[in-house]
Write a protein that binds this DNA or RNA. Sequence first.
DNA 1: CTTGGGTCCTGTGCGC
DNA 2: TGCGCACAGGACCCAA
Length: 291
Amino acid sequence: MPELPEVETVCRGLRPALKGRILAKVQTRRANLRVPFPHDFAKRLTGRRVGKITRRAKYILAEVEGGETLIVHLGMSGRFTIHGAGAPSKPGRFTHKVASDGSGDGTHDHVVFETDEGTRIVYTDHRRFGLMLLVPTEELESHKLFAELGPEPLGKAFTAKSLSASLKGKKTPIKSALLDQTVVAGLGNIYVCEALYRARISPKRNAASVAGERSTKLVPVIKDVLSEAIAAGGSSLRDYAQADGELGYFQHTFTVYDREGEPCLTPGCAHKIKRLVQAGRSTFYCPNCQR
DNA sequence: CTTGGGTCCTGTGCGC
DNA sequence: TGCGCACAGGACCCAA
């Protein structure tokens, strides 16, 4: 479930296994994910030391020695598992979802990294909506994937004022506007639903009408929802990773997402949560609490 | 310019 | 038990 909090959690999980390590072996098991791997992808990574690992929006960025950065997007179903020496659990404890060759689920393991410590980091993605690229670090900011991205929702630049400015004049529903990565970078379907619920704003409301007063309420709520999810991921990562080496995926409990027909959890409300489709995506909301 | 819809791909869960 | 359809956490591309 890779939205910003999950990507952040995966980043944090990858760091101890990858940062400062040399990529002893890199293997791609097919020619492409959503897009083809860059020319000589594995060859260009092999033997190089990994530097800083950061996140921008839903992208994982890993600097590699020689001035290039590995860009990873998890798409809808991308995930990493860590096996062996550098894994976050004791060696030999992986029992779950690990194929006989020590990989993730076996059939959809598309990329395998092996470090100089013998740690295997396996990228698994059954839908293949993910992406891996390798670009010169100095060209990152101007790269077309990043050039148009809006502010980081947890960053200082994301304020009621900045959000108001980008919503002004927008005719789309606020739900769709918040999924637009040029408005704010990293929100996905779940956390948009959760944030709008917590801010008591209807997903159907025109984006423009959220500029001003409502943005003042919405922005801190977005920051809270994401921060709490990261905190939950961070704390459950240790336990979950101990079980099978998988990073950043755990059972969330959401307040509205995927709760169609169930009672609203706001005290004294108990209206049924409704589902509607906006721009092809499911929206969950409480018609009583959200206006 | 903005906006909405189709599309990539595989898996799962539901109703019949 | 099997089948077909709707739907799934993302985001690009293109037509209107």
